[in-house]
Nucleic acid binder design. Structure first.
Lengths: 109, 109
DNA sequence: ACGCTACGTTAGCCACGGCTTACGGTAAGT
DNA sequence: ACTTACCGTAAGCCGTGGCTAACGTAGCGT
């Protein structure tokens, strides 16, 4: 597995507001770098750097198209984040049930 | 609505690795500040600051217990993030379907 | 009242990271 | 082959934010 999805990287990637804007644009449809930068308040190299971070986090994927690079949404990133949220949500639920059952010290069933 | 959930703040909050650690500990069960700091590589004031950020993001909630402050998971934060992810995921799906159907300009069916 | 515990807050330091400018590299057009 | 378009990368600047140390506050016990 050359590039595994690291959920922490995904959260850190979407932590930046500019990166969220880029991600939203890409989610609305595949787009090239220049087209993305044209609708953003930052320069094109900045968009490239952000796309690199998003790509390493498994949130977007690039597809060469001649001299251009088309970026599209990568389902794995969103899936990983959803799994992470659901997992911790389930953990919290389990902890709450343990609390309701008034079990003082119990690791697992 | 005194404290609305701002999804961007939630992503930014979980973008920090230390804050994710704290959030995971809180998800495993309600805990006080000192107990959290004891199991983390940072000082107690740092944990307080992180908890403040997590609280303002709607990810955790505090419950006074004498001189201590018990922090527990706030469902609204996770729910907001899940909604955000699902929303953009649906957007990407819709864009992909438009691409497959080769419709140049079509909002929805 | 005194002391102790448990937190939040402030001030300040310092590393991290986002941004721009400049450069290099690749692909298509003529 | 030359030019143009499109993009990634390197260097450098500078604001943001996470961290610690020190201080101030509220609650409980003796």
């Amino acid at each position: 597995m050359p590039n595994a999805i690291r959920t922490p990287d995904a959260f850190a990637a979407l932590g930046d507001p500019t990166r969220r804007l880029i991600f939203e644009r890409v989610a609305r449809g595949p787009s090239a770098v220049g087209a993305l930068a044209a609708g953003l308040p930052v320069s094109r190299p900045a968009v490239s750097q952000h796309l690199r971070v998003l790509r390493e986090a498994g949130l977007v994927a690039e597809t060469p198209d001649g001299a251009r690079r088309i970026y599209r949404l990568d389902p794995r990133g969103i899936a990983a984040m959803r799994d992470w949220l659901d997992n911790h949500w389930a953990t919290a639920l389990a902890a709450f049930e343990r609390f309701v059952d008034e079990l003082p010290e119990e690791d697992a069933s």
